[in-house]
Design a protein around this nucleic acid. Structure first.
Lengths: 144, 144
DNA sequence: CCTTTTTGTAACTAAAATGGTTACTAAATT
DNA sequence: AATTTAGTAACCATTTTAGTTACAAAAAGG
């Protein structure tokens, strides 16, 4: 979907904050759960902070916490916060404008990609952090 | 959506073949429309050939042509041919299995990504090469 | 006031992905 | 035989990505 792991790690981060239930959680603790470097976590939290999804508190007893209740945070919110520009693989796609096909294909492909992206985002909008948290607390992954 | 331009260029290639209406089109001609190197085109056509979406013919009057009618080729066919493994940004995502969250989050995220991917692919399945070709032949891009 | 803890960021590195290019072989046409 | 083209391997430059080091700023608590 995205190629990088920013979105997946961000979901993990926020799921962890939901799991810790409002406590101020330092980046080092989150990094322990994700198995990565604390700076990687703080970099993503910097984006999530700008999107107002989390609060940050400096100092000895500081750390990060959710800015809203888990039911009010959707995976689309997270996706948009850390995956800003969907350039849709059109990064190096600059067809020949002198060719009848090349002149029009970019606009056409843009339209198709836009719809596909919208469809995917609609699916992400359907899932809240509360739903993720609930799955986390289910006793057995196979249980209904 | 994908990060790279393989899918976009592949759609362009097949749209061009549809536009050329069954003729054997050499990679150099397609490269002229896409504005890239013929080898880039042939590399993608190699994947499209394996997926049986095109025919190839060597020699002086050779080139590539569509293997099926444009109505029978969907953008999902193309997507699957050139974008084989949707590893969903989980490439370097290996959370800590000792942590209650880390142990379960990967499976949960996998489920979400699978649904989002399916939703996007359903949208691609809806669009055929014939529809792209029709858009190419519309007189004005804004015309209904 | 001083020490400790933590956020916030810049800077650097290694690895991987990506697209372009050269070069060469095989096959088909004339 | 000469020409044209597919097919593919190999290589290079650029960009992206994640990890790391380093350090300033801020907050807490004695």
């Amino acid at each position: 979907m995205t190629g990088n792991s920013r979105f997946a790690v961000s979901v993990h981060i926020l799921a962890y904050l939901a799991y810790r239930h409002g406590a101020a959680v330092p980046s080092a603790e989150i990094a322990g759960s994700v198995s990565t470097h604390p700076v990687v976590i703080r970099r993503l939290l910097s984006s999530l902070l700008k999107a107002r999804l989390v609060n940050a508190q400096k100092g000895a007893t500081g750390g990060f916490s959710l800015a809203s209740a888990p039911q009010n945070i959707s995976l689309l919110d997270i996706y948009r916060a850390v995956e800003p520009d969907p350039k849709h693989g059109l990064r190096t796609f600059t067809p020949n404008p002198k060719c009848p096909v090349g002149a029009k294909i970019e606009t056409i492909i843009h339209g198709v990609f836009f719809k596909a992206q919208a469809s995917m985002e609609a699916e992400l909008a359907r899932v809240t952090l509360a739903a993720i948290d609930q799955e986390l607390h289910s006793v057995c992954p196979g249980k209904k």
